[in-house]
Design a protein around this nucleic acid. Structure first.
Lengths: 202, 202
DNA sequence: CCGGTATGAATGAAAG
DNA sequence: CTTTCATTCATACCGG
């Protein structure tokens, strides 16, 4: 909902969908003249998939921009499409994996939700805790302190931080500003993966 | 993909998910309003949006409680829902309105050396043409149908008043237990006055 | 046209 | 506050 994009009844913007840049006739999406939602072309999907396979899971804004720009060659695309694509792809991948990995039975949860019975968590003395306190307790038990917390998150950017599954990779540290002259890093026909094609624009 | 398995992992403490969010036809979602997560009704969203538009960004605990209580009239809702709503709305509004920076970590472009000689070719960062961040400007294509409206109020938000920015305002320590008795207008520091609906319960 | 399925988009919830 | 995770909603699309 929010500013508009709400639940059901809302007409898709008929206006300004940019022309569907033909781009190579990739089977799938190209034909969709409708402009309600992005429909990736085969090439776009290919590149995105390749990037994903390479380990990229959550591209940074900067990467998104580059990817988006690069993919725009194949057809209309926006940054948010790239963003959503990765989000969805990662999520579904995980989701699928989770379902397949526990076909046993419903892995009953063991959430860390504070239940009303054993409530003894009145430890909201710290300001950094204020927000949390609101929900863990009953709606009536909200503390009265909340205002500001100088908690300025660390702006450090430890790029090489060991994320769980986020293999932030760097393509040889290459950094091409202009993607029009992408290099064809021809794969020497490796066995397993189709390998990357020209995604060295990152 | 897989069917909509309701593999909820979280268990709400307390009364479970008894409360129906319906409340006068609100039933927003396409019916699949399970109890897993709060599904705001149109009225609730409307009020929240209105509050947001009025300048409220980070409601205090007290405010959250009041808002929550007030909105409970339209359907099941908890304090944390209000809290999260504001947080998400604020964050997404910014991410949308802000030129870049979207999901993912920081923009590591804290300091960029611009070589005086080499022209800084191609700069996506400058969306002068499209004035949109990574997430373009909202698709905002909502048809304002009278599919429903609160029966006891004249919610009318037709003015396309531009969102004010970080106008953090604070309600002076006033706290009324019951808002039905008094009608206190939230004092925002904006001058556009006419948009007081019944959110005077703050 | 109508079903199911794949997936883009949105957003609630939460972690950091 | 920022960024990620999970779930859901809405479509495009395919086979019948």
């Amino acid at each position: 909902m929010e500013d508009g994009v709400c639940s059901r009844i809302y007409v898709k913007g008929g206006g300004g969908c940019g022309g569907e840049s033909g781009s190579g006739g990739g089977g799938k999406g190209s034909g969709s003249s409708k402009c309600g939602r992005w429909n990736p072309t085969a090439e776009q999907v290919k590149v995105l998939t390749e990037l994903f396979r390479s380990g990229l899971r959550t591209p940074s804004s900067d990467q998104i921009q580059k990817i988006s720009h690069h993919l725009s060659f194949y057809g209309k695309i926006e940054s948010k499409n790239v963003f959503y694509w990765f989000q969805n792809h990662k999520a579904r991948e995980r989701q699928k994996r989770r379902k397949l990995s526990l076909p046993q039975q419903h892995q009953q949860q063991q959430q860390h939700f504070i239940l009303p019975t054993s409530s003894n968590h009145q430890h909201f003395a710290d300001q950094s805790m204020t927000n949390k306190g609101i929900m863990e307790l009953e709606p009536e038990r909200m503390m009265r302190t909340l205002q500001l917390f100088p908690l300025n998150s660390t702006i450090d950017e430890t790029q090489g931080l060991p994320d769980d599954d986020d293999h932030q990779f760097r393509v040889n540290g290459m950094q091409y500003e202009d993607a029009t002259a992408f290099t064809y890093k021809i794969e020497t026909k490796m066995d397993h993966p189709p390998l990357d094609l020209r995604l060295s624009f990152l």
